[in-house]
């Protein structure tokens, strides 16, 4: 997708975000209000200025028919999907199970690893995670049942 259009959408998003925080800030009590109010107002104004400037840039570019930077979108979305899928798996199955499933499928489908090497890697990671957890006193997310 065209980078300038994306920039426009992003600044539009930021504009609405700052508008939301501005409206929300109005409900706070006086002492909690001033800081978020100041920065929201500054944010609203600046993003609005940027938004207008961006519209102009696009308008000018269309006239000149310059080369526009095109950003690929599908590929990153796929990988973001993997990350979110992994987190969902953790939510359902707890970290250990989710890691096994995620690592195994990712290594085979995305990294094109052989079954055996993927299997070995997964086992290694499992050992490391459990060792680390007992040695470094770290915790990991459990699923709803507490597995």
């Amino acid at each position: 997708m065209n980078k300038d259009y994306l920039n426009l959408i992003f600044s539009g998003f930021l504009f609405s975000l700052f508008t939301f925080t501005l409206i929300e800030a109005l409900t706070f009590s006086k002492l909690a209000q001033f800081f978020p109010l100041y920065i929201s107002v500054a944010g609203v104004i600046l993003t609005f200025v940027y938004f207008i400037a961006q519209v102009f840039t696009i308008y000018k570019q269309q006239k000149k028919e310059e080369n526009q930077t095109i950003l690929p979108l599908l590929q990153p979305l796929k990988y973001i999907g993997w990350v979110i899928g992994y987190l969902l798996l953790i939510f359902i199955g707890g970290l250990l199970l989710a890691t096994v499933i995620f690592l195994f499928t990712f290594l085979i489908f995305e990294s094109k690893m052989k079954l055996l090497s993927a299997g070995i890697s997964v086992v290694f990671v499992l050992i490391c995670v459990s060792l680390l957890s007992s040695a470094l006193d770290i915790y990991w997310p459990t699923n709803l049942i507490g597995f």
Binding site: L131, L132, S133, S134, L136, D137, I138, Y139
Partner: peptide, 18 residues
Amino acid sequence: LLLMSAMLIGCNTMEATG
């Protein structure tokens, strides 16, 4: 990492899985 962690286990007395 594993080797380093193994060094630490000696002084570990806590169950940490929560």
